[in-house]
Simulated scan of single mutants.
Amino acid sequence: MAWTGRLITALAVCGVLLAGSAGCGSRAAQEQEQERGAGAPSPVGKLLEERDDGGRPYREVDEEGAPEVGVEVTPDADGGWDVRLRVRNFRFSPEGTDNRAVPGRGLAHLYVNDRLVALLRAPGHHLSPHTVRRGTHQVTVRLYADDDSVWAVGGKPVESTADITVSEPSPGTAPTAAERGTAGPDLAAGGRGSPDRDRRAG
């Protein structure tokens, strides 16, 4: 079996070449690799130094085709709140998805007054009356990739915030307009929303 030794030697030489500047592949494959270039932009963006409060890094992507999110919060009949997300260029990943960043995919983190209350893999969520008590509150939704990095544009996280006010209604009365909270771009119409309510950064 003298050929075995020669084959192993040939594979070892190929391994050394692959670790260097050349490989054992065809010249065309090498040229394609050079055309792509080591410094070419990644389709999943660039990790930044900035991090969220939980230490998760921002993942910067181009504004064109970037994920967008809007949030609407409305009171329900039982004293709780229904949260509805409107997303563009983004799809929710199911439970068990691989822990890696894929363009325009991931989950949303739901915060009430900067406190994380839920991880969302669907566009709807219900806040119980105990979660949001009397007073004015900020409900923020922020988009994350599956590797737990924060989708970001222009160094700012992709997020949207709604302000809601909870008062003590009189028995048997419906919630007032002041108790409703909405924010985010009118995604159906292609709008960007009001600048003081729709934002990518807090």
Rank of each mutant, 00 (worst) to 15 (best):
P171Q: 12
Q34W: 11
P129C: 08
V102T: 10
P171N: 10
V166H: 12
R6G: 02
A19V: 02
W3P: 11
N89A: 13
E49R: 09
A12I: 06
S93N: 08
G70N: 08
I8F: 06
P195Y: 06
R142L: 04
P41Y: 00
K156T: 03
A77S: 13
L17C: 08
R84F: 08
R134T: 13
S167Y: 06
Q138I: 04
P75V: 04
A122R: 11
I164D: 09
E64H: 08
R115V: 11
D98I: 01
V44Y: 03
D53S: 15
R199A: 09
D82S: 15
R91G: 14
D114L: 13
Y111V: 01
A38F: 01
G79D: 13
I8W: 04
R88A: 15
W151N: 05
T136D: 09
N113G: 03
T97Y: 05
D146Y: 07
A178V: 04
E159L: 08
G106H: 00
D76P: 12
L120D: 13
P171K: 10
A178C: 02
P129Y: 07
L7E: 04
A174D: 03
R133H: 08
H130G: 11
T4H: 14
E68A: 12
T140M: 11
E64P: 01
E63C: 03
K46I: 00
E72T: 12
G135N: 06
D198E: 09
R115Q: 15
E72Y: 01
C24L: 02
H125I: 02
R27N: 00
R180C: 07
R91A: 14
V69T: 11
P157A: 07
R36Q: 13
R192A: 12
G190R: 13
D78G: 12
L143T: 06
R142N: 03
G55I: 04
C24G: 04
R51I: 04
L110E: 03
E68G: 10
L85W: 14
P43V: 00
A145P: 05
G79M: 12
P103R: 01
G184R: 05
R59F: 00
V132A: 12
T140R: 15
R56E: 13
F92Y: 15
G37R: 08
Q34F: 07
N99W: 14
G104H: 05
Q138G: 13
L116H: 00
G155V: 00
G154N: 11
T165V: 08
G124K: 08
P171W: 09
S93F: 08
V141R: 09
T97H: 10
L127I: 02
E50Y: 00
D114S: 15
C24E: 01
A2H: 10
V69M: 11
G65M: 06
P123M: 07
E50F: 00
V150H: 05
G5L: 11
